[in-house]
């Protein structure tokens, strides 16, 4: 009886794992095949990887899109983490009634759907285009700015700060550190795990974001990877080998970040949901 239960458990988990992983296997294998092989249902590695790579780099300017995505995501991650952790720290360490009120109002922004913001934001940046060309439509700043401060991330940092030993702060003050100095020299290094988890969430979100870049970016030289993949996929005669290679390369950096920071990720999440 106990054994049957065990077998069912492992069978259930194996099916779930198979369903989860199979599309990854399929996209990797397909990136080495010709489009004809892919549509024909070939599920073994082929020999077309190099040719797919050459087409991807030559014809569709994949390298440029990759760099665009990388710049936007790195900038977004670094700035978001800084802004959100300063705020989360500020709300928790310098707690006051007034600040809690502001915090709750900010949390309310989590309920605002992006769909309701995209039109006013588009108009805002379209209006800025005239006066501040670096801030208008089709600019990197324009893509980054609206998503820089998120209530979710502030909440995440505040929750984690609750477990931060406050005595250390007093010790820092006695040692003559400024308030900002305490944040950067004591808090930030201690909270590595939280930062790692936040970095994964933010980097992934930014790297994979689609709707806002779709609205903001208007020229091909500025397009990000999701836009490129969507364009390749909706073209008149899609080449599946090339599309799958594009998807594999697009997925790699996130996979890398995830596997490198995985331990911190789980630990960081555990800290925040306590």
């Amino acid at each position: 009886m106990k054994n049957i239960g065990k077998i069912i458990t492992y069978l259930f988990l194996s099916i779930a794992a198979f369903v989860s992983i199979f599309p990854f296997y399929w996209m990797i294998v397909s990136s080495t095949n010709t489009s004809v092989d892919v549509t024909g249902g070939r599920m073994l590695p082929g020999t077309h990887l190099l040719q797919n790579w050459q087409t991807l780099m030559g014809q569709v300017n994949f390298g440029q899109s990759f760099m665009n995505s990388l710049q936007l995501s790195l900038a977004t991650t670094v700035l978001s983490l800084l802004i959100a952790s300063l705020a989360g720290y500020g709300f928790e360490i310098y707690k006051s009634r007034a600040k809690d009120l502001v915090f709750n109002i900010l949390l309310g922004s989590m309920m605002i759907p992006f769909a309701a913001l995209m039109i006013p934001l588009f108009r805002m940046f379209a209006n800025l285009s005239g006066t501040f060309p670096f801030l208008g439509l089709n600019t990197k700043m324009g893509v980054i700015l609206p998503g820089l401060a998120t209530a979710f991330l502030i909440f995440f940092f505040r929750q984690s700060t609750k477990m931060f030993p406050k005595d250390i702060l007093e010790a820092g003050r006695i040692d003559g550190l400024s308030e900002l100095g305490i944040f950067f020299k004591i808090y930030l290094p201690t909270m590595k795990t939280t930062y790692a988890a936040a970095a994964i969430i933010t980097f992934m979100g930014s790297w994979n974001s689609y709707l806002w870049p779709l609205i903001m970016i208007q020229t091909q030289d500025r397009q990000t990877l999701p836009l490129l993949i969507a364009n390749l996929g909706s073209s008149y005669a899609p080449d599946f080998g090339i599309i799958m290679l594009a998807i594999v390369i697009t997925t790699l950096p996130v996979a890398l970040v995830f596997f490198l920071l995985q331990k911190h990720f789980v630990a960081g999440m555990t800290g925040s949901v306590k």
Partner: peptide, 30 residues
């Protein structure tokens, strides 16, 4: 100390006000 606290949260609060709450009001106006 209180002022420093506000300093810590200011950037985030302003960004959310400008890029979430203000557009929200705009959307209603529109």
């Amino acid at each position: 100390q209180t002022m420093v606290g506000w300093g810590f949260v200011a950037v985030a609060a302003i960004l959310i006000a400008v890029f979430s709450f203000y557009p929200m009001i705009q959307a209603f106006y529109l």
